[in-house]
Design a binder for these strands. Structure first.
Lengths: 326, 326
DNA sequence: GAGGAAGCGGACAGGGTTTGACCGCTTCTC
DNA sequence: GAGAAGCGGTCAAACCCTGTCCGCTTCCTC
């Protein structure tokens, strides 16, 4: 058994996948002692692979990009990932369903039988969730290409205004696609919905990249959705104070901003498409509510109070079923 | 220097560089006996490399995959699908993130340059949406395998009850994973959340497949979510009548059951995790509410009416921002 | 500037692996 | 049917690989 060679190949594959690998983690993954990992790294270096190492915390090993690698093979995990990913792509919101099916089929063919079985055993039915807009693969390609080439992008947004932006990142989140870009006309960072973008050709000149505030795209986008601006995008938004720990509240809210005010007290900002809906949304937390504002929200609370009181007065129909767990 | 591993990698390179290699030549190049070459080839095969051999004169060894004429003939669409799917898999809710990255690298390697560029041009940042439970790849594999093998599956659900089911389909929907199965204990079709399943080994005997009502899994699952049984699974569920067209209501609800009662009147059944939350959920529709039942729901409406009235009486703080569109 | 986290690499013993040699068999082509 | 090429079993001896132990260095943080 050539455990060593296999491990060396696996090590290469791992080093490819991730920017920095601490030695201890690699040791765990490869099921050997850290000492052996060091030896393996040394071996690969002797074989000509440029593996850099960074000391100190956050250090680890890194395979320099642009390396000519031996043909690596799929391992079990990759097979599963392929099967899952490609079958899931059916609901990615990108028009690649059929291509994904074909790609899976193609890849399957170059797999060893064992992995092929693994893939075959994992048949997934992907069910589209209603309300997710579709992005065409071509648009996505165009956006991706502009990002990659660092070329100024011109596009029509929401089929009206034309924008000029420096595109930085293509982001997928919860079935939707976004383009993170610097808006040249407004001089600010913006997150555009990819499904509303119609790129115009040709793309503009190259730009020199700017620093994204915070540096981390994921954090930036998440921030746009739930950070201090997490509730923009809704026509109505308002703020209340709840007699609940912040932790409890944030467990039940996905799109608002929760701020701790005390052990059993927190501030909550939510957004919704109407004042009534917004007021109702605050009701889901079983706690007393103190409205901070705006006045529209207060009015909505008053309205709902009246409506709920009326509802509570309607005659009971006892035969209706109660709760039930499935 | 570990000769063996180095030689194995060298052998891979050689096989990659040239179409056919007679064993004797390889032996000479690698400075080992022909016997060792045969062993090396065997080793590579054990590692999964598809090395074909041709006997007779002009015979020799050939690496099937990874050569520049790979059987991996992706077209542009497949390349895009792979790139999208695998980068997206990061947020699939399955623990395959790193494996997906590696898989993408692996296929990338055996692609023609043009497609490789295409893949490289489409870099996606996948942002996880909070609140989506993770399913382990192993569990998914186990479920998939049982479905594939048509074997009765035993598992612990929500870490308490043990179930015996005939598994039929693995379904992904909106970032969550479900198992559609026939529950042997309750004698009925059920949809289980994969993240709550802990499969138990071994799986039971084979079963002969049943006909899924309706025949279409996608339709079946969608039906479970918004159809006649869409509200099971919640600890509390209740029913109201709204003064709104059914169409308007169903546009704003994804998990309840809407039934038309007239042009401007409909019945709505919803589920939630508490009576208060349930009552609040009904409030999001801007219309008068008539409670059908159960009594708990009515009480919750009364409670909320009082709470909302109190909230509406708190002193306004005018400087709070109003609505805004992004 | 002290402490700690992380990587480096020497030494060593025990145990598993690898190699070349030899050999008889099979398969394919001419 | 002969010859070329690959297949694979067996064996003993050489080889190497691994985990453990340990003292050093580097770099970050407090």
């Amino acid at each position: 058994m050539q455990k060593t060679s296999a491990r060396l190949l696996a090590l290469l594959s791992l080093l490819q996948a991730r920017r920095d690998w601490p030695g201890a983690l690699l040791a765990e993954r490869l099921r050997v002692s850290p000492r052996t990992v060091r030896r393996d790294v040394e071996r690969l270096r002797e074989l000509g692979y440029p593996i850099a190492t960074f000391k100190g915390p956050d250090g680890g090993y890194r395979l320099d990009a642009g390396t000519q690698l031996p043909p690596l093979l799929f391992d079990d995990d990759q097979a599963v990932a392929l099967a899952v990913a490609l079958q899931l792509a059916t609901t990615s919101g990108v028009g690649v369903e059929e291509a994904a099916v074909r790609a899976l089929h193609t890849v399957r063919q170059v797999m060893p039988v064992r992995l092929r079985h693994r893939v075959d055993g994992l048949q997934v039915t992907a069910v589209e969730r209603p309300g997710t807009p579709q992005v065409s693969g071509d648009v996505l390609m165009a956006l991706g290409a502009a990002v990659h080439a660092r070329e100024v992008l011109r596009f029509t947004y929401t089929s009206q205004e034309t924008r000029r932006v420096e595109p930085y990142h293509l982001v997928a989140r919860g079935g939707r696609w976004y383009l993170v870009a610097w808006d040249l006309d407004r001089d600010d960072w913006r997150v555009f919905r990819a499904d509303r973008i119609s790129p115009r050709t040709p793309t503009g000149p190259r730009f020199s990249p700017r620093q994204l505030p915070g540096g981390d795209v994921a954090a930036f986008v998440t921030g746009r959705f739930r950070g201090s601006d997490g509730t923009v995008g809704w026509p109505c938004r308002g703020e209340v104070i709840l007699d609940l720990p912040a932790a409890v509240v944030s467990r039940h809210t996905h799109d608002g901003v929760v701020e701790e005010l005390g052990p059993d007290r927190c501030r909550l900002v939510l957004g919704s498409w109407s004042w009534t809906a917004l007021a109702a949304a605050f009701g889901r937390f079983d706690a007393d509510i103190e409205v901070v504002g705006p006045a529209d929200l207060r009015d909505a609370f008053a309205l709902l109070a009246h409506r709920y009181a009326t509802a509570a007065r309607t005659a009971p129909t006892p035969e209706q079923g109660g709760g039930r767990t499935g």
